[in-house]
Design a protein around this nucleic acid. Structure first.
Lengths: 186, 186
DNA sequence: GGTTAATATGAGTTGCGACTCATGTTCTCA
DNA sequence: TGAGAACATGAGTCGCAACTCATATTAACC
């Protein structure tokens, strides 16, 4: 890991990007137990190249998480700025669970909130944006005042896990989330 | 797997029971990725003995699931007979989630409701007893009438997963379940 | 107690996946 | 354009865990 000494060579930058993109797809499809070999193959590079950029499978996973995390945080931030206070939280929540049904990565991510990978810190920005959404929803009277961010995160992680592992279809997902949202409302 | 030809020899019966008991503890503690070696060691038998009784790790897991399942179903049945209609479902629900926080096996089990192991059938009795609890709760006016068993099972699996992976402490667990239960009530 | 079929043993086989490294290739900058 | 550093390659190493099998024990029935 050259950290940030000199800028990467052009081919190295290209390969790093390819690997990251492909790895995200592979792990989203097969979960984190997918082999590094498969990532290398689909990226069209040798396995040594993958390990040059990410000396450990774990570091590769972390890099992906960081990307996904950044995207989600941005999405939440946008909703907190523009969205309807009364529905933005629920919209974001539903969207995430829908993604989880197809992207195993998202689930790993959310469950890292409590333990798992050592990236509890990395989740903090997302958590804070969700807290912002929660705040606005409560001010708008769309969510009970005594609901805390911990519970929202816990429910989010739980429903994502459930949707993935249980293979909920969109109908079941919607009905289940309706119950959860009812519990959150005043 | 001698199926059911002649009765097992005395030592074989003893070993089988020991292995099952130990394996349940081991997998509850370390999850299904724990090695068969460790089960054998803790049971005080050679690894070959474990494979004689359960030719596959998968079959060992299934046997454990079956046991746990039977116990849970019995518990649910008892509650459906004796318990207060208005609270029995919630009590059972909370109890299961509390167990999940410590027993990884329970979680694997519940998520098998949708997919995972090929034991969707084996879960049916439990599902039916929970359906009975739901029915009584609805008749008592403690749960909204339009809640279906699928949603309850989905929420159960999700919260169990969440409690395990997220390492919810008892406080967070209680507050989170309160929200879910509120969503289920009229 | 002797016979034997059932059972137990545990060193070995097999397969897989993370990770390494000697060698070959390509970018970069003067 | 040529030297050299950065990078890519992929066959090989290493460790682990599921599973096998020839051999040794033991329960069960006479």
């Amino acid at each position: 890991m050259p950290d940030d000494s000199r800028p990467l060579r052009a081919d190295a930058r290209r390969n790093r990007a390819r690997i990251l993109a492909v790895a995200e797809a592979v792990f989203a499809e097969k979960g984190p137990s997918a082999s590094t070999e498969e990532v290398a193959e689909r990226a069209g590079v040798a396995i040594g190249t993958v390990f040059r950029h990410f000396p450990t499978k774990h570091e590769l996973l972390q890099a992906i998480m960081k990307d996904v995390l950044a995207r989600l945080t941005e999405q939440a931030t946008a909703l907190a700025a523009d969205g309807d206070p009364g529905t933005a939280l629920f919209a974001f929540f539903a969207d995430l669970v829908a993604q989880a049904a197809e992207k195993k990565t998202v689930v790993e991510l959310l469950s890292a909130t409590g333990a798992g990978l050592s990236m509890a810190d990395a989740v903090r920005p997302l958590r804070q944006q969700i807290a912002a959404l929660l705040d606005r929803a409560q001010q708008a009277g769309a969510v009970r005042a005594n609901v805390r961010i911990d519970e929202v995160m816990a429910l989010l992680a739980a429903t994502c896990q459930g949707a993935l592992q249980g293979g909920w279809d969109s109908d079941l997902r919607e009905r289940t989330l309706t119950i959860v949202f009812t519990g959150l409302r005043a």
